[in-house]
Simulated scan of single mutants.
Amino acid sequence: MSGPSRTNKWRLAQEKIIKESEQNCMERVYSSIGNSSVTAIHQKLDNLSSRLSSLESNVANVLAVVKKLAVNSKFTASVEFPVENLSSLEEINKKVEEDSQRYVALLRSTLMPEGVIKNLGRVLSLSLIMDMNYGGTFSKKGLNSFESLNSALYEAVKRDGYTFDDYKRDVRLAFSKAKNKVYKRNTELNKQKQQQIETIFIKEDETEETITDEGVKKRKKKKTIT
Results as ranks from 00 to 15, higher is better:
A64K: 15
R11M: 09
F138M: 11
N190I: 07
E198T: 09
E155W: 00
Q196L: 08
T187V: 06
K218S: 10
F146Y: 12
K203A: 02
R122I: 04
E206H: 01
M130F: 05
Q195F: 10
E15F: 08
D166L: 03
A156V: 04
S36L: 12
R159V: 07
L69C: 09
S100K: 14
A156T: 09
E27M: 04
S176N: 11
A40M: 12
I202A: 05
K177R: 07
K67F: 11
T76C: 02
E214V: 10
I200R: 11
D165E: 15
G135P: 01
Q192D: 12
I17L: 05
N8L: 15
P113W: 01
L48I: 12
S176Q: 08
S37Y: 11
K184N: 12
I197N: 09
S37M: 14
V38M: 10
G121D: 14
F201C: 13
R172W: 02
E204H: 03
E27K: 04
D213F: 07
V171L: 05
T110N: 01
E98W: 01
Q196H: 10
F164N: 03
E208N: 09
E155G: 02
I17F: 08
A152Q: 07
K203Y: 05
E206M: 12
N133V: 10
K193S: 05
D166N: 15
T110C: 01
K74H: 05
F81E: 01
L153Q: 04
A174K: 00
D213H: 02
M1K: 08
L45V: 12
Q23G: 00
K118I: 06
L12K: 08
I200T: 03
L126V: 14
N35L: 11
F175V: 03
F75S: 08
L86T: 13
F201T: 15
E97L: 05
E114K: 03
N119R: 07
L106K: 00
S49C: 06
N93L: 05
P113S: 03
S32C: 11
L143Q: 03
F146N: 04
R102I: 10
L124E: 05
S21Q: 13
K168Y: 01
C25Y: 11
S49N: 13
L143C: 04
L153A: 07
E27T: 09
K141F: 06
V216K: 04
L111I: 01
G142T: 10
Q101K: 13
S176F: 15
S145E: 13
K168I: 02
M112R: 04
D165R: 10
E20I: 10
K94D: 08
S37L: 15
G135T: 13
L189S: 08
S148V: 07
Y162G: 00
N58L: 11
K140P: 05
I117H: 00
I117P: 01
S2M: 11
S21A: 13
T187C: 06
L63E: 15
R108Y: 02
E27W: 02
S37T: 11
Q14N: 12
W10Y: 08
K168H: 05
L126C: 11
Q101L: 08
